[in-house]
Design a protein around this nucleic acid. Structure first.
Length: 617
RNA sequence: UGGGCUAUCGCCAAGCGGUAAGGCACCAGACUUUGACUCUGGCAUUCUCAGGUUCAAAUCCUGAUAGCCCAACCA
């Protein structure tokens, strides 16, 4: 369905692929949804690498910092990495990038894992790792860098460092500490680790190029001192590697082949490559006993089978090193995606936690009733490119509707009940009408709904002052009660305030639940519930969180919060079959939308998405 | 003359020198015991702009323009 035939031509020739890959592809073609996942530029790169034998087994990763909950933008990063591995028979790692002890918490570690498993439907095939578990290895590599004169301890303060760094248009100046001896650097760095210096006293910097037009290359700090307890390492460390240094090393340690991240890291790629290259053969890390290293068919082999690595680190070379690729991050209309805003919404109690059903977080979407498959479908349809964009949230809603239309059982809910008395129907009679669980799919079966003299219909399904094309109940005309009688409104009963409190109608008992013998056409069909056989419940009706498609960058985003984004509707009547509904089950409330029981509040149903309605008064 | 990236329908997005896929949204019609679904038709003579190369350009070249990212001891 989403597969583009034209993409087939871009795939490498069959002969260029190895057997495992081939069989994988064949299986997918016949049975799985995976092949429907459209190719993208990342796949193009991977397929070229595979075809050329540059890589043998694809290995990707998703490296969240455990400092917040995952959102649908994170899901894009997960999916791009996860699907690349899956599609090409590779492995996918979850790696917590927990190199900053001040921001990370175990709660987030837990939620991230839960969300990823929910989204992908499986535990990460390559394993779960923590960046902080590599601190010792990172430290050793840093020692190597110092020994080869590629890193130095710098005593410049933060402010001084900023001055020395130069500006976007002017080159920086070299630090006065740049040419310290290897011995001095080694001594200082050892003492940094030993805790001899307070926070901010000095840093370890990579010696690259203070005049580089890329600010990231102007001798970036790669280690800082921070005497803060780490959520996982406790007080074991007081020096922490920075992202630009730690991340490429982590990728290399895990034998990641394709490291896909979002576009803002594009400027960091030269530094990523620089760090990775410090791990190459001539760095002294790899010893091959006769000096001969060859690569055959993407397979790393050594002439006589003898390969030694001095610290257990797999050697990195031209054919087995990680590469970083960037894709555009996801933006959606009527919501915000930055973790900062999401956290603020939670902390200021503007929403009911990270899993508030209005939030674009995965936990929020899950609680709202969204499915992983609809999210994946949405992500794939929105596509993966490098162009900055804002995807219409209507596309997400469409994906959810499309899936639920096929899978959700139809049920009846009357949200604003208006009493209707069927005057020609006996007081003590109860008649069962069979009603389909899904009009388009008889395999989903049917149930029986009791019909009695007193029923409820939606207040909005009656009007005594109907606008044009009002195909519902109005005085003197007929309407179909879904799967039951045709009724005609004879009388409108009002209370002292003129409020309509009851409708008195007569049913066409001759026709019953059938087509009228005289062939007359009934325009409208409305839903109903026996007033004696229904249950009381509530609905949380959700709308978009914000009132504007995009929040202007210079505005206060709280000014754009939609005050009606969550409305509790109580006094809702539901058919009895819904009494046993459990969170995780999704229903179509006929003519209204899709709903699911809220996981936190018993007897409350969350609106997932409304049905598309083309009626305009 | 800081560097990098990106520009194809209202919103996404294919396209990789051979004469503009698809999805969402929208509009019109058919069907309908859900104003849903489904179906049918309509939605870029044109690819940010201006030149150039070519039999042929969204695709190549040149030059503009616009948007995004970069000056944390964050990730």
């Amino acid at each position: 369905m989403l597969n583009k035939g034209s993409r087939a031509a871009a795939l490498p020739a069959v002969s260029e692929l190895d057997e495992t890959l081939l069989s994988h592809r064949k299986i997918n073609k016949e049975t799985s949804k995976i092949m429907d996942y459209p190719a993208n530029f990342i796949h193009d790169i991977i397929e070229k690498d595979l075809a050329k034998g540059i890589v043998n087994k694809i290995h990707t990763r998703f490296p969240p910092e455990p400092n917040g909950y995952l959102h649908i933008g994170s899901a894009k990063a997960i999916r791009i990495n996860f699907e690349a591995a899956k599609r090409y028979g590779g492995l996918f790692n979850l790696r917590y990038d927990d190199t900053n002890p001040e921001r990370e918490e175990d709660e987030y570690v837990r939620s991230i894992h839960e969300d990823i498993v929910w989204l992908t439907g499986e535990e990460p095939t390559g394993g779960i790792f923590f960046g902080s578990d590599y601190f010792e290895k990172c430290y050793e590599v840093a020692l190597g860098l110092i020994k080869s004169g590629k890193a130095y301890v710098c005593d410049l303060s933060g402010e001084q460092m900023r001055e020395y760094r130069g500006t976007l248009t002017e080159p920086g100046k070299e630090s006065p500490f740049r040419n310290r001896s290897v011995e001095e650097n080694l001594d200082l760095f050892t003492r940094m680790r030993a805790g001899e210096f307070p926070n901010g006293h000095c840093t370890l910097r990579a010696k690259i190029d203070m005049a580089s037009p890329n600010m990231n290359m102007r001798d970036p700090a790669i280690y800082r001192i921070n005497h803060t307890e780490h959520h996982r390492q406790g007080d074991k460390w007081c020096i922490y590697p920075l992202y630009d240094y730690a991340h490429p090393l982590q990728d290399a340690f895990e034998n990641i082949t394709h490291s896909c991240c979002s576009i803002e890291f594009e400027n960091h790629r030269p530094l990523y490559d620089w760090v990775v290259e410090q791990l190459t053969v001539d760095n002294g890390q790899l010893t091959v006993d006769n000096g001969q290293l060859t690569v055959d068919n993407g397979q790393l082999t050594v002439d006589n089978g003898q390969l030694t690595v001095d610290n257990g680190q797999l050697p990195v070379g031209p054919t087995n090193r990680p590469h970083q690729y960037e894709f555009a991050r996801l933006n959606m209309t009527y919501t915000v995606m930055s973790k900062r805003y999401l956290r603020e919404l939670v902390e200021s109690k503007l929403v009911d936690g990270w899993d508030d059903p209005r939030m674009p977080t995965l936990s929020g979407l899950r609680r709202r009733g969204y499915t992983p498959s609809a999210i994946a479908d949405f992500l794939d349809r929105a596509g993966y490119s490098k162009a900055q964009s804002v995807v219409d949230i209507a596309m997400l809603e469409h994906c959810m509707r499309e899936e639920l239309n096929a899978s959700a059982l139809r049920r009846i809910a009357v949200t604003e009940p208006l009493l209707v008395t069927i005057t020609n129907f006996p007081e003590d009679k109860s008649e069962m009408f069979p009603i389909s669980n899904h009009p388009g799919n008889s395999d989903m079966g049917k149930r029986e709904l009791p019909f009695t003299r007193r029923i409820y219909i939606e207040r909005s399904d009656f009007s005594d002052n109907p606008p044009p094309k009002f195909h519902r109940l109005k005085p003197g005309t007929e309407v179909r009660l879904m799967s039951a009688y045709i009724i005609k409104c004879d009388e409108v009963v009002r209370d002292g305030n003129g409020e309509i409190i009851e409708l008195r109608c007569t049913a066409d008992l001759e026709t019953g639940n059938g087509v009228p013998a005289d062939g007359r056409k009934i325009k409208g069909t409305i839903h109903w519930l026996s007033a004696e056989h229904c249950t009381d419940s509530s609905i949380m009706q959700y709308e978009r969180l914000f009132t504007a498609e995009e929040i202007p960058g210079d505005a206060d985003y709280t000014d754009f919060l939609n005050k009606d984004s969550a409305k509790l509707i109580s006094g809702v009547k539901l058919e009895k079959t819904l009494e046993t509904a459990k969170p995780g089950e999704r229903f179509q409330f006929v003519r209204l939308g899709y709903y699911t029981p809220d996981s936190k509040n018993p007897n409350v149903f969350n609106s997932i998405v409304d049905l598309k309605s083309s009626y305009r008064p």
